[in-house]
């Protein structure tokens, strides 16, 4: 068992460039990062309001990271006697005293919880930034939080997703049930437009091969469904609904958002905004824009 669970949060903080101590990057790396951030900001083609929003986000994110690092260091300083006992014990090939191990486990737990909170706060800043940026700039960025951003699994979001899935199944089941009980005369005419509405809901364009095939599949499915014995219908209703949804892709666990063409990802923007040089850079860019400097880009 690890003495302290890896402080991923701290590693991330360091990677993001926030540090109470002097910036550890070599001057060349800093200058190149500065140029890279400038390149990204220009490519976003920002208005003055956009630059102001980026500046606010950068200051907030750096402040959050800096406060967290201060807090983390304070926790380590407080735990230093235990850390030393544990270190000396391991170095000498001895077991860490149980009381010390317990204290370090507690430290690890509280630090992980604080890191989680930081990552959530930073992610919220990114969400706010997305809302504040002009549509033209915001759409150049894929704001989806990437899998390797260290947010803990969101149990609530999972439940919400399943609730939405249940709602889709229920709605589809209701649609199928309404077709099942149509009288023979209505069945011929009404079934088709109900199925058309359903396909439209899932973005399947009319007059395409996909549409024709889906309509063919659903026609056969509803034919089959209508002759099922009444006593079995309650059990079969959701099954038919699920089969219909499988066909149109509505059963996917995650409805993939339509992939839009973006220039930058979440990490590109977050790394720029976390760089301690960025607030000064954005202030300069804002000044240059307000004074109408240059124009050579």
């Amino acid at each position: 068992m690890r003495v302290l669970s890896p402080m991923i949060g701290l590693a991330l903080l360091t990677a993001m460039g926030a540090s109470l101590a002097a910036d550890p990057r070599p001057e060349l790396s800093k200058a190149l990062d500065y140029a890279h951030s400038m390149f990204i900001f220009y490519r976003l083609d920002p208005t003055a309001e956009d630059l102001a929003a980026l500046l606010r986000a950068s200051r907030n994110i750096i402040r959050l990271q800096s406060e967290r690092e201060k807090e983390h260091l304070a926790a380590l300083v407080k735990a230093a006697p235990d850390l030393k006992i544990a270190r000396d014990a391991l170095l000498a090939g001895q077991a860490i005293p149980q009381a010390v191990q317990d204290a370090l486990d507690r430290l690890s737990e509280t630090e992980t919880a604080a890191d989680d909170e930081l990552h959530e706060d930073v992610a919220n800043e990114m969400v706010m930034l997305q809302r504040q940026l002009s549509e033209e700039s915001a759409r150049l960025v894929n704001w989806r939080i990437p899998w390797d951003y260290p947010l803990p699994p969101d149990d609530e979001a999972n439940v919400e997703r399943l609730e939405q899935l249940a709602a889709r199944i229920t709605s589809c089941g209701n649609m199928l049930e309404s077709i099942r009980y149509l009288n023979a005369a209505d069945f011929v005419t009404t079934r088709m437009w109900r199925l058309q509405e359903f396909l439209d809901e899932y973005g399947i364009e009319p007059d395409t091969r996909e549409y024709e095939e889906a309509m063919d599949y659903l026609t056969r499915l509803t034919d089959e469904m209508r002759v099922q014995p009444e006593e079995q219908w309650p059990d079969l209703r959701f099954l038919y609904a699920a089969r219909a949804l499988v066909y149109v892709g509505g059963l996917e666990q995650e409805q993939e958002e339509a992939e839009q063409e973006t220039l930058f990802g979440f990490w590109d923007i977050l790394e720029c905004l976390s760089d301690p040089q960025t607030p000064e850079l954005l202030s300069k860019l804002l000044d240059a824009m307000n004074t109408g400097a240059g124009g050579g880009q």
Partner: peptide, 17 residues
């Protein structure tokens, strides 16, 4: 965590998946 009626609908979809 789902309510019973939600579970009845979602269970089939997930099982299908």
């Amino acid at each position: 965590q789902l309510r019973e009626e939600e579970y009845e609908a979602a269970r089939v979809a997930l099982a299908m998946n």
